[in-house]
Design a binder for these strands. Structure first.
Lengths: 342, 342
DNA sequence: TTGAAAGCGCTAACAA
DNA sequence: TTGTTAGCGCTTTCAA
């Protein structure tokens, strides 16, 4: 059976008390250098591993944080996770990752599990089906440090890290208009998501500033976010069936952008007919058949900032009350055939 | 401060003993239906969440398992994780995911952390830089259930799940040869990895059976596995500089396949000049500019099987001694221009 | 500078 | 069917 060395074992072997060993191992100021050396050497020799469950049970700290994202297969999230880990590693924090697959119930379950496992904090991107936040509000009120990332929740006051959704959308649409596009469709995932709203606001503002009329029929939502291709295909089919067809489509979602490409391929719609610009952090974007203009979020950097913010809360001596939302620029890349700079 | 309801609180409120409450909550046969109902109703009312750290500390079980993969950004792994979770969810197990970024040291750290967090078992794909397994051997000897996945370790006797590396490689090469290719290069990641060896064996066997001479200069390794593009580019450049240039290349790695495509694009080598077939589980493969024949592993299924095997070990009444290695078929898809069936 | 003792929240013998 | 008691491995008062 699995029987690791315990702190007690060390105490016994070294004829010290458990508390001394514990303190020595944690490099407490009360312990003499000599004792510390003896203890640490012995511990290293027998490959002692402290048990975080026992430690956490007592001290309510675990030096580990939880990361909750909707989908690991989404490069935006995996890049962000790498950013989070780059900081966590440096600061000696472990990370525990879980995905919700955009399910509200899975999210609740995962968050509870992490909280109970005594993570010291949480970095979370909401599931797209989450419209009710009491599970998070409760934890947050109880003192669990939380940082929201990408998809944020207004109702909970804490640090939030998002990309410049409004501005980058605005800029993208503006550029399209200046390039002669007039009928720009808007394709988004779930309408209740913060990112959908912010991106739509950017779209709307650009149209208004350029005196282009808003057309309801050009707005389509695919709540599955592109995981259900038929949904995207249906939306695109509807758009292309309009009397006044769009000449461009702005896709406000990462997975959705690729789903949209696939739909266009299936519907045999050429990229000359319909320009497409979408949010995308896909690595392979340069290898795609159809050149696609895209807005690329600085996911790694966003992850790093999220972790930095979380650490700030965790290690704060006094509760923080003055939270803000970090907005990170995104980079726009124009497909070559449009002949535009990025 | 964070002060969750404890089992004791419930016991106090209901004037029961903690053990009764504990048993009622866990639906023990010893407890009357009435008491169970009272307890469960009350617990639900106050939103009681059991503390798995305390439970785990005592019972040495946590109903959670660890998943360790090299890289979350690799679709093969994220698909496999989804497969693992599909079974874990059903059986009431939580999953804790970590990535090693193919670092040996990160792997050790992550595995230790998980073991200490009392995961009930581990599903792991080795880091490509791991050549020494004492950290795992130790845990395994101590009784931690482990299932190896994709990249396996001969030295440790437990369940292993891999794809049919030899056979699918053999079949792919055979097909290439039958299609007239004669100078088939072999591109792999780290040579010490089980997958590299198995795939090379398939390659070698097919050549031999078809009486094609083995040529050392057609074999190239890219230890970074495609994350360092310059490495791949250099290898491809070397290959194309040979007097007798290859007319096809077989890529024995997921990320490497895409890296290879990118290298060919950069070197402006047409797919007519050089056919490429590689392992790949990329979702977007149908949207790529260059049609690429590919071997697609049944990642989701492999994940499911891994989890099933792990559960078998975890829940075994008596230690299992008779382990085997599950080999799952892979599917070969031929790029259209080759005019072959899959 | 070290040790003794209590207890974190839970489970599992053993008793009743 | 329920309660009592001890203890998982560690940290943390408090005392020495």
């Amino acid at each position: 059976m699995y029987k690791p060395i315990t702190l007690k074992d060390i105490a016994l072997a070294l004829d010290l008390s458990p508390s001394t060993v514990s303190r020595a191992l944690r490099d407490s100021y009360e312990i003499s250098k000599k004792t510390k050396k003896i203890v640490n050497d012995y511990a290293a020799g027998v490959n002692y591993q402290s048990n975080p469950m026992a430690a956490g049970l007592r001290s309510k700290k675990s030096k580990s944080i939880g990361i909750v994202v909707p989908d690991l297969a989404n490069s935006f999230f995996s890049q962000a996770i790498s950013g989070i880990e780059s900081i966590a590693d440096k600061e000696g924090y472990h990370t525990i990752i879980s995905q919700t697959k955009d399910s509200y119930h899975k999210e609740i379950e995962v968050v509870n599990h992490m909280a109970n496992r005594s993570v010291d904090g949480l970095i979370i991107t909401m599931s797209s089906n989450t419209t009710e936040y009491t599970h998070l509000q409760q934890m947050h009120k109880s003192g669990l440090p939380i940082v929201f990332f990408d998809r944020i929740v207004d109702e909970i006051d804490t640090y939030k890290v998002i990309c410049n959704n409004f501005e980058s959308s605005y800029k993208a649409i503006l550029q399209l208009i200046e390039n002669g596009k007039k009928d720009i469709a808007f394709l988004a995932t779930a309408p209740q998501l913060s990112i959908s709203k912010e991106r739509m606001n950017g779209y709307r503002a650009a149209l208004m500033d350029q005196h282009i009329l808003w057309r309801d029929e050009l707005i389509k939502f695919c709540p599955s976010g592109g995981s259900d291709h038929s949904e995207t295909e249906f939306a695109m089919k509807q758009l292309m069936a309009l009397d006044q067809r769009p000449d461009a489509v702005f896709v406000a979602g990462d997975r959705l952008s690729m789903s949209c490409l696939r739909a266009l391929k299936k519907l045999q719609i050429d990229s000359d007919e319909l320009s497409i610009i979408g949010f995308s952090n896909v690595d392979l974007i340069d290898l795609l058949e159809t050149p696609i203009s895209h807005i690329r979020q600085r996911a790694f950097e966003m992850g790093q900032i999220s972790m930095t913010m979380l650490l700030k809360i965790i290690e704060a001596k006094y509760p923080i009350t003055d939270f803000d939302t970090k907005t990170i620029d995104a980079d726009i890349f124009w497909a070559e055939h449009l002949g535009l700079d990025s």
